[in-house]
């Protein structure tokens, strides 16, 4: 028996797969955006509104990752967007290999593809899916202490979308505190408070998305 010193992070094989997938998708013309949040944060509602608002300006596809159901994929398909459902079979996150397998179904698709990751603030942050941008969604009813409880997710995200701002009067939610806490963890993070219901703030989020997509295409 020979001792082999490794000191490798456990996720290193996934990190390599994710890098490969990112360049593959560049060839295929798919800009992959990984959406992470807790269950019930309004991911599907935010996506529905974004798809409707950007119709004619961007081709959008959605890959829904769920432990077992297909209710979200059906909601997205009703809008006419290409939508596929991936079942993680009990796993709490998507990794690069699962993302690649799911994207085979998106053959021929170009444009923006959203990966709606499993609703969970912990595990998805630890596994690189191969996405070009990571976006976290935090809804007002969840509370403004989330950056303190789930710091890794805030560190890994390029943007934070604060949803359900129309419900703010009913909750003790301090938007400025969230911004301060999120920026302390990740000074680069872009923050977009929105209400997909009233449309407030949607334009800023959508312009950011379009400009990131454009920058990626020109890179």
């Amino acid at each position: 028996m020979k001792v082999i010193e490794l000191r490798m992070t456990v996720t290193s094989s996934n990190d390599r797969d994710a890098e490969e997938l990112r360049s593959e998708l560049k060839e295929r013309g798919i800009f992959l955006v990984n959406l992470m949040s807790a269950p019930g944060s309004g991911k599907t509602t935010l996506l529905s509104r974004t798809i409707t608002d950007l119709s004619g300006r961007a081709e959008i596809g959605v890959m829904e990752a769920d432990i077992a159901s297909d209710v979200d994929a059906l909601r997205i398909a009703e809008l006419g967007a290409r939508s596929i459902q991936v079942h993680t079979d009990g796993m709490c996150h998507m990794d690069a290999g699962m993302t690649r397998a799911g994207l085979i179904e998106m053959e021929g698709e170009r444009g923006i593809v959203f990966l709606e990751n499993v609703g969970n603030l912990i595990c998805p942050a630890e596994f690189d899916t191969g996405a070009h941008k990571n976006v976290m969604i935090l809804s007002v009813p969840e509370g403004d202490d989330k950056p303190l409880k789930y710091p890794l997710m805030f560190r890994k995200s390029d943007a934070l979308v604060i949803t359900k701002t129309d419900a703010a009067p009913y909750f003790d939610f301090d938007t400025e505190a969230v911004k301060r806490r999120a920026l302390a963890l990740n000074p680069e993070i872009r923050i977009f408070p929105v209400s997909a219901k009233t449309g407030e703030g949607m334009e800023e989020w959508e312009s950011w998305l379009l400009s990131e997509w454009e920058e990626w295409r020109n890179a």
Binding site: M1, K2, V3, I4, E5, L6, R7, M8, T9, V10, T11, P151, L152
Partner: peptide, 16 residues
């Protein structure tokens, strides 16, 4: 947090 969040494979004993 300075450290405590690690998760790595330190070493293995292997038969070549």
């Amino acid at each position: 947090l300075l450290r405590g969040n690690e998760f790595s494979i330190k070493q293995i004993e292997a038969e070549l």
